[in-house]
Simulated scan of single mutants.
Amino acid sequence: MKKKIIVGVVTVSLLAGTGLYSYNQRVLAKEAAQIEQIQIEKLENAERAVDSLYNSKRTMLAGDLKTKLKKAEIAVSKVEKTGAKERLSKEIRQVKKIAKVQQEVYGTLKNGVLIKNVTLENLKEINQSLITIKSQNERIYAYLAEYLSEANSQLTAIDTALNKVKEAEKSLDRKMYNNALKLVNKVKNPVKREELSKKLEQVNTKLVAMEEERLAAEKATSEKLATEQHQSAVPSNSKQPISSSSAPSNNSSNGSVSSNPKANSSTGSNNSNYSGTTSDGSSSETNWDEAGKNLEDHDWSNSGSGEIGTTGNGSGNTWDSWN
Rank of each mutant, 00 (worst) to 15 (best):
K68M: 07
K68L: 05
K68V: 04
L69N: 06
L69W: 05
K70M: 13
K70E: 14
K70Y: 15
K70D: 12
K70L: 11
K71N: 12
A72P: 02
A72W: 00
A72N: 03
I74C: 00
I74M: 06
A75E: 07
A75P: 09
S77H: 08
S77T: 01
K78I: 03
K78V: 01
K78S: 08
K78G: 04
V79Y: 06
E80R: 05
E80Q: 02
K81A: 05
K81L: 00
K81I: 02
K81P: 01
T82M: 03
T82S: 07
T82I: 01
T82A: 08
T82N: 11
G83K: 12
A84E: 10
K85I: 01
K85F: 02
E86Y: 00
R87K: 07
R87P: 01
L88C: 01
L88I: 05
S89N: 02
S89T: 08
S89I: 03
K90V: 00
K90W: 07
K90P: 00
K90Q: 11
K90E: 10
E91P: 00
E91F: 01
I92T: 04
R93P: 04
R93H: 12
R93V: 15
Q94L: 12
Q94T: 07
Q94C: 08
Q94V: 06
Q94N: 15
Q94G: 00
Q94P: 07
V95A: 05
V95R: 05
K96M: 14
K96F: 11
K97M: 12
K97Y: 12
K97E: 15
I98F: 13
I98M: 15
A99K: 12
A99S: 12
K100C: 10
K100S: 14
K100F: 13
V101T: 14
V101D: 13
Q102P: 09
Q102C: 06
Q103K: 14
Q103E: 15
Q103T: 13
E104L: 15
V105W: 15
V105Y: 13
Y106N: 14
Y106Q: 15
G107C: 03
G107L: 04
G107Y: 03
T108N: 08
T108G: 02
L109M: 03
K110F: 09
K110V: 04
K110C: 02
K110D: 09
K110T: 10
N111F: 11
N111P: 00
N111I: 03
G112T: 02
G112A: 09
V113S: 09
V113G: 06
V113W: 14
L114P: 11
L114A: 04
L114Q: 07
L114E: 09
I115C: 05
K116P: 06
K116S: 14
K116G: 09
N117W: 10
N117L: 08
N117E: 14
N117K: 11
